[in-house]
Design a protein around this nucleic acid. Structure first.
Length: 556
RNA sequence: GGCUCGUUGGUGAAGUGGUUUAACACACCGCCCUCUCAAGGCGGCAUUCAUGGGUUCAAAUCCCAUACGAGUCACCA
């Protein structure tokens, strides 16, 4: 009875060898420094912000080097699987603007020639690799039950030994091949464990692209490589898949750092060249003065849908993620306002070693800056698709009055220092409702008059203005001169300065008068440039707003 | 508890032995500009880099200890 017999018994139908697979999935024909990397989530629901950051970095790194970015589905845990889990992932990626070169594109379809990209479809491939290990006596079946493992753990705790399946605690390691064969034939359930060649007293140093050199004791645990259900564990699947898919860079969350010795060992056992590793720290959130990992369950902002609903543009989130990934990005972007994320030179070593706080304030600020820089038409298109989904009434208005809407979005835009009003699309309606007669009509009218509050004076001022001074064709300067004339006529100073010097001589100043016009037209004391608003309104709407005030029953 | 990593202002952080009386950005505060707001301009906001030792002519930067935080120690990824 030999290891070969054992291997044949466990994997009777496996005929392909490692060499066959090496041929089937040859080295990729890419430039030398091209990065081949992957996003490898479990299909357990939506994509978490932290994973999104990782996939964003992966996409960027591959694109920058003319490499490949692929999506692999890690579904070896049958229990955690979720209905339509793959679609959930692919749509999140798509909505977020991350494209893949290879991998799963739906529950059943995939693209690329290094597949299958869904681990549960790769069973035979894993088995071929496991079979080789068993043949060579580098892996062995373990019959320990959960209870037995628990006992071992307790014994170790009592003796204050390291926890784990290693050395003298690895009892199945010593089972003679013949006995193992016997027990398997008897139908005893088993897992497969790696016969670890590691020595805990020796050190290995692993270079991590983000964290730098990390030194660990060698791994001496006989880790499980195949579960009772025949599927591989993460560690083993990682080895086989990333080798065969010719992955050059593993970019993942730093919860994996501690298994680095195991992974390196696995590559060494097969004589494969290990990939480069980059471990990214988790995104944190502060709550009640304590920092904790941004949680899928507790934090709505962990899900992509949150940004979608809020109307935070995708590109703004990307900009934010880029600054989280490489903090020097912000300065670069500020100095290169006309460039895009694609033009930025990303670097692994600039990724923060410790977990950054997820700061929604900052995101909104970035979003605001971004939205202020784009063209009104571009803004309009995004606003329309947002409103279409979340605000039907507003959607109808802005599509009905398209040019008008673009016009108002264009106020103080496309200039060196553009106006920054909107951080997200859900802000817009609340800021501009008074521009639309339909909304103005139904909106509660709380006229925010401040210094001039006498109803008769306001109305007479407005009527005088519209009859005597207002002319739609005036340019901004003339327009303002006329408001000054109006002020003078009503006993207000033409210049604020004059008023401040001689407050007794006047009832107020131009500012007070233009405030009256502003409030009559919009009800609000704070609006964008009045001249632009009036230009957009036209004389008729201005007159109708004066009428509305006159009709108002309640006192001001 | 073992192993690994980290700790610079309210926040994100730059910084790898002297050019740092610690960059930049967000937030906050003040002033200015101004028909309001937004924006913008100017200024304020860590005499100090978790704490304690040490090395050095010189340390946020190197070494050691302590404290705190994070990750991990599954037939989950």
């Amino acid at each position: 009875m030999t290891n070969k017999d054992l291997a044949e018994l466990i994997f009777p139908n496996i005929t392909k060898t490692i060499e066959d697979y090496e041929k089937e999935y040859p080295e990729r024909n890419l430039p030398e420094d091209a990065i081949v990397t992957r996003f490898a989530p479990s299909p357990t629901g939506f994509v978490h912000m932290g994973s999104l950051l990782a996939s964003f970095v992966e996409r960027k790194a591959a694109k920058d080097t003319n490499g490949v970015f692929y999506l692999r589905i890690e579904d070896t845990d049958q229990e955690r699987k979720v209905e339509n889990g793959i679609i959930g992932i692919t749509t999140d990626l798509k909505n977020f603007g991350i494209s893949i070169d290879e991998g799963a594109i739906s529950e059943t379809e995939e693209i690329g020639s290094y597949g299958p990209y869904v681990q549960s479809s790769r069973r035979e491939i894993y088995h071929a690799f496991m079979k080789r290990l068993v043949e060579q006596g580098l892996a062995y079946p373990c019959f320990c039950s959960k209870e037995e493992l628990e006992e071992i753990r307790k014994a170790q705790e009592k003796r204050k030994d390291r926890i784990g399946y290693y050395g003298r605690y690895a009892k199945c390691r010593k089972i003679p091949v013949a006995d193992a064969i016997e027990r398997i034939k008897n139908g005893e359930p088993f897992t497969l464990r790696l016969k670890s060649p590691g020595d805990y007293n020796k050190k290995i140093v692993v270079k991590d692209l983000v964290k730098g050199n990390i030194s660990f004791p060698e791994n001496d645990m006989d880790i499980v490589i195949m579960k009772q259900d025949g599927l591989p564990t993460y560690h083993f699947a990682h080895l086989v898949d990333d080798h065969l898919m010719r992955t050059t860079h593993i970019i993942r969350g730093d919860e994996w750092v501690s298994s680095l010795p195991t992974h390196i060992q696995l590559f060494q056992v097969f004589g494969f060249k290990p990939p480069k590793y980059a471990h990214i720290s988790p995104i944190m959130k502060e709550e009640g003065g304590v920092k904790r990992k941004l949680s899928k369950r507790k934090d709505p902002e962990a899900a992509m849908s949150y940004y979608h609903e809020q109307g935070i543009p995708v590109y703004a989130v990307q900009l934010y993620l880029m600054t989280l990934a490489n903090t020097n990005f912000e300065q670069w972007w500020d100095a290169n306002k006309d460039k895009t994320i694609d033009d930025f030179e990303f670097s692994f070593s600039k990724i923060s070693k410790s977990g950054g706080l997820f700061d929604v304030e900052k995101l909104l600020n970035i979003s605001k800056n971004y939205l202020s820089r784009i063209k009104a038409t571009e803004f309009y298109d995004m606003l329309v698709s947002y409103a279409k989904e979340y605000d039907e009434e507003f959607y109808e208005l802005i599509t009905k009055y398209k040019d008008f809407t673009i016009g108002l979005l264009n106020i103080e835009r496309e200039q060196k220092k553009p106006r920054k009003d909107y951080a997200k699309f859900s802000d817009v309606k609340e800021l501009v409702w008074y521009m639309y007669d339909e909304l103005f009509e139904k909106h509660e009218k709380d006229y925010e008059f401040s210094t001039i509050t006498d109803r008769n004076e306001i109305i007479s001022m407005m009527e005088t203005y519209i009859d005597k001074y207002y002319d739609e064709s005036d340019d901004q300067q003339t327009w303002f001169e006329k408001i000054k004339d109006l002020s003078e006529e009503f006993g207000y100073a033409r210049e604020v300065k004059d008023y401040k010097e001689n407050p007794d001589k006047y009832k107020g100043h131009v500012g007070d008068v233009s405030m009256v016009i502003r409030v009559v037209l919009t009800t609000k004391s704070m609006t964008p440039n009045l001249y632009d608003i009036m230009k957009l309104f036209g004389k008729n709407r201005i007159i109708s707003r004066i009428e509305k005030l006159k009709e108002l029953k309640k006192t001001l």
